[in-house]
Simulated assay, not measured.
Amino acid sequence: MSPVITAMSVISPFGLGADAFTRGVLAGRTALAAVDPSAELPYAAAGVVEEFDLAAVIGNDAKNLAALGRAASLAVGTAGLLLRCHDLAEYPATSKAVVLGGDLIATDRAMALTRQSLTSPQPFQVDTKAFPSSVMNNSAAQCAIRFGLRGPNTTVTTGRMTGLSVLAYARRLHLRGRAPAVLVAAVEDLTPRRSWLTWHGHGARSADPLGEGCCVFLLESAEAAAEHGRVPLAEPLALEFGVAPHPDAAAEVLAARIRRALDAVRGSVTEVSSIVVSRRCAVAERLAVADLFGRDRQVIEPACLIGDTDGASAAFQLATAIAHASASDSIALVTSADPDGNVGCGLFRISAAVSCLEHRRTRGDKT
């Protein structure tokens, strides 16, 4: 049976936790703030996660936190928030997997080490303590080490599609019996180097303010979740990916993938209640949506509130769809497109239990 998402944790510019993110999204409140002009960055505003006490989030026995790096700190902190509510003690350590992704994670420290090697008197005179955090799988490894998750450990990076790709990978792990419980995560940190890389890579076509943060979802079977008091928040119904032969064909390819996803679940455009796009200047996504759903179809844009989170954007889009849960089960469409022509989409059944769960939390019920 297809696995479901039964828990969600978020660290975003709105603050710590899924509740802070949900409140910010539903209020339509922007978390973008002006960037210090003295930083000489190409963006005037950004969605920045305020500094937080990571040791308090993950426990008093936390060690060597200073060497983690920004991306790993966000990932470990977000995973810690989820595991603080759901310790998953019912699963053996070898049954708990981590699938984490991002786009430019670890790039900042890797570039810093490269610069040290080139500018130091000798090429080996670099900060060796920074080596672990300069590799892309550092964040996933740190989550596994610090929380005793000894199942499969995978890092995925597919650009803006990463949030959808980690879900696809995690589903395959679960369906093949490799991991009964999977922490599915996407993270992106905000650094000066990432800002300039994005600016030069995308140019004026991508002038959206940047953002940072992390989303972690728990993927497991509905039966196992019910045994331990968890309810489905969302179910991945279909995940589709494609590559346009040239960027101008991205809208056409994405529209075809959305049709394919709908056909896979025998659905129609009228059944899709919400559409969440990756960013304001997502031209290909908007054209594909207009082609299938009509020009007047409204879309949700979380990037307008928290900034463009790049490799974590699709995960934040799913978190936004969950935040908008209604009183009845609904179908949400998440779309994604990179400037180089890579596209992807996901159809999700968002459970009405989300709104009920939020209602219980506001009344003080710990469930």
Rank of each mutant, 00 (worst) to 15 (best):
L175E: 13
V184N: 03
L175D: 12
V184H: 04
L175W: 02
V184D: 02
R178F: 09
V184F: 01
G203K: 12
C215T: 15
A179K: 00
G213E: 04
L210K: 04
C214Q: 10
D189G: 03
D189W: 03
V187F: 11
G213H: 04
A186D: 05
W199E: 05
A179N: 03
D208M: 02
G211H: 06
S206N: 12
D208Q: 08
P180Q: 06
W196Y: 14
A179R: 00
G177D: 04
R205P: 11
G177R: 03
G211F: 01
G203N: 14
D189I: 01
R193V: 07
L175F: 00
G203S: 13
A186V: 00
R194G: 04
H200G: 09
C215V: 15
G213Q: 05
V187P: 09
A207R: 15
S206M: 05
A186M: 02
L175S: 08
S206A: 11
R176A: 10
T198R: 13
C214A: 13
G211T: 11
D208H: 05
L173N: 01
W196L: 10
L175C: 11
L173R: 00
L190G: 09
S195V: 08
P192F: 08
G211P: 10
H202T: 06
A204T: 12
V187R: 13
R193F: 15
L190R: 15
L173G: 01
L190M: 11
T191R: 11
A181K: 02
A179C: 10
G213V: 02
C214W: 01
A204K: 14
A179I: 02
A186F: 00
E188I: 11
